[in-house]
Design a protein around this nucleic acid. Structure first.
Ligand code: MN
Ligand code: MN
Ligand code: ZN
Ligand code: ZN
Lengths: 143, 143
DNA sequence: GACAGAAATGAAAGTGATTTTCATAAACAA
DNA sequence: TTGTTTATGAAAATCACTTTCATTTCTGTC
């Protein structure tokens, strides 16, 4: 998985005529070995511990590249920070977000996806992407 | 409908001990007679034509009040601008957004809503709100 | 109507999260 | 190694709000 993504990114870099740099390798490793749903700031701070000389702008630009290459996806949970999450080849999931403790649960539901397509079709739309987020209180927070 | 919302807002104002001002009336009229899904900036510019002396901050604060009073809902389509849309009593809808021309279509789907509740339940969550947006290309833009 | 106190307004300053600029440094093809 | 292209980091600029504060309005009382 990690291997696959590294390879995928290397190929993206090559195919685009971009350069393979020390920073991009470091940031990719940090990203792949981190929580899903990291903000730029979070990843930047995590990196700073071992690599104090990496700039925020580089992390920012590199995460954009990850998204462009298809190994990451940009998400917004409405807290004002852009987050990036790992994308697995051919997979998709949506999110359940606890508004109390911030816990994020991922889920897939084929039936919902199908119904979405039907809705789109009935309005003569062809869906490219979608966003489904359920905000609420998790079990722990209700106790 | 427009009547109802005006009344609802007047009552909200009264019940909260706030004041009824010329600006709030003007902004409410402009909001109610405008497209659904207006950004603060858009409403502000629309207003400026007839009322050059109304400040951006007042529009901003008043839209927040509309949302608080229940006659408007804040939405984010990921374009970096907060938008406000009319809310009809006891109604709910989700959005289909054309990424090419910006057209927004509203839809309701009871089955999807039910499935969302089931997903939440299965993860011991109680949903407070949700966001479902389908992004794609509309029929017109495909021709 | 005149007044006092409370709340609202508008212009300008402040915020926070990006996003861009630019001088310098690193890749990489030849 | 060299020349050319691309990347990097620090700092400045942007953008979309959000807050501050001096001044105006409202509104209930005389
Ligand atoms: Mn996820
Ligand atoms: Mn809508
Ligand atoms: Zn929780
Ligand atoms: Zn379109």
């Amino acid at each position: 998985m990690k291997r696959t993504k590294k390879k995928a990114f290397r190929e993206f870099i090559a195919q685009k005529g971009l350069k393979s740099t020390r920073q991009r390798d470091i940031i990719l490793d940090a990203f792949l070995s981190s929580d899903r749903h990291m903000s730029i700031e979070e990843l930047y701070l995590k990196l700073r511990a071992k690599h104090p000389n990496i700039g925020y702008a580089t992390v920012y630009r590199t995460l954009k590249l990850f998204a462009e290459s298809g190994i990451a996806r940009e998400i917004q949970f409405g807290d004002g920070q852009t987050r990036y999450e790992h994308v697995a080849e051919g997979e998709h999931h949506d999110h359940l977000v606890c508004t109390h403790c911030g816990t994020i649960i991922e889920f897939e539901n084929e039936t919902i996806e199908k119904l979405q397509d039907e809705v789109a079709q009935s309005h003569d739309f062809i869906i490219e992407t979608h966003k489904l987020e359920l905000y609420g209180i998790c079990g722990k927070c209700r106790k």
